[in-house]
Design a protein around this nucleic acid. Structure first.
Lengths: 210, 210
DNA sequence: GGCTCTCCTGTCCCATGGTACAATATGAAA
DNA sequence: TTTCATATTGTACCATGGGACAGGAGAGCC
């Protein structure tokens, strides 16, 4: 609860009306008159919420703002609102990950449903991203050498091979390997490989010889 | 090349015109007058291709056919065509995985582009599915006991623990483990875990004790 | 110059994984 | 009944992983 809805629309009276309606539904609301305004304040991605975005707004258009937000890796789902939708714009927006695309005038119940869905999706995405981020943070703490060893371990190389490929001794690899398991907070090789797979850092094998 | 385009439209003259145009573009074409017709013949998912689907057709509608195909786990991408698109239908179709949603009359170049994209996507999806299917086939060849051992191995259990959990001896587990590595055609634990991760069979650990 | 961090190296010892060589028991299928 | 797949167990032996204990070399910072 207390999720944020960010409304971007150049029609002040519409913003106000929608704001009132959403606050009654239990949402916290922030309004913006333009894409620029939203980008300047850049809503916090960590707070549950979503964006309600008019397609035609002065300056940067709705879809332009969407692609900009995608570049910035925002995961806030977008619910588009528009007076007259053309099909190409609709298709493009949904393909780019918009949660919904609605036409004005819109029944407020229907809009709220879309917003609820968007917020729920954001919760999920946020949870996943948080889990991945913490894994990435662990990985980032490895020294360059440890990272090399990590890559070779999760490809199934044994210590002897790793030592040979890195031009050092088996004993040294054991030391690095120990550090890797320690820093990645895992007790088994299986967990380590699982992490590598989820982070997409695992190469299929031969690529690493280059 | 020689990809199949499956056209579903109740307008015979439209079908014929489009068929001619697509054959010139190098496609193989199969036409259907209704959703039923396509379902009866059920296009082969293994052949590269896509479906061009009119939204409003007698009997089962385009979107209904789409959801039916999804249930049947078809991976053939769908390009929708329609006279007058309403936004809700468009959004729903794209969310359900349609490659595109175009309005008639449509420039044939534009349609061909959409079909090219759809076919390309199908190639990718097919490749991925084929790879996963062959892994699943390997997994299916494990005996029930071997499968239990597999699950525990990829969760990071050591032989001793597995033996205890399955109420047998370490030596027995070694035998099963050998069979598992053999049947799954892997040389290292890392590869085995990677497969489990990609097939989504890997539990996070504690769940398996139940 | 000290201090810290990274990277590197060594020996001893034990736990674990893997293999070769064998063998038994059970149930289903031919 | 014979045959086969499955599941089971055993004894060795060796390779690999990993911990305990100990130390050195080079780079960057205060």
């Amino acid at each position: 609860m207390h999720a944020y809805v960010h409304i971007v629309d150049d029609d002040a009276s519409f913003r106000t009306a929608l704001e009132r309606r959403l606050k009654l539904a239990g949402y916290r609301v922030v309004t913006y008159a333009s894409a620029r305004e939203l980008l300047d304040q850049m809503p916090d991605d960590e707070e549950a919420g979503c964006i309600v975005l008019d397609v035609r707004i002065p300056g940067m258009s709705g879809p332009e703002l969407q692609s900009r937000l995608n570049e910035l890796e925002s995961t806030l789902p977008i619910v588009f609102l528009t007076g007259h939708a053309d099909t190409a714009t609709t298709v493009q927006a949904i393909k780019a990950g918009a949660e919904d695309f609605l036409t004005k005038p819109i029944a407020s119940d229907q809009l709220i449903e879309a917003i609820d869905r968007a917020v729920a999706r954001h919760q999920l995405a946020r949870g996943q991203r948080t889990r991945l981020d913490s894994l990435r943070a662990l990985l980032a703490r490895l020294t360059p050498r440890e990272r090399q060893v990590f890559d070779l371990i999760v490809c199934g190389r044994i210590n002897k091979q790793i030592a040979h490929e890195l031009g050092t001794t088996e004993r040294t690899i054991k030391a690095h390997r120990h550090q890797v398991m320690e820093k990645m907070q895992v007790q088994s090789l299986a967990e380590l490989v699982s992490i590598a797979e989820r982070l997409g850092t695992r190469q299929s094998g031969a690529e690493l010889k280059a």
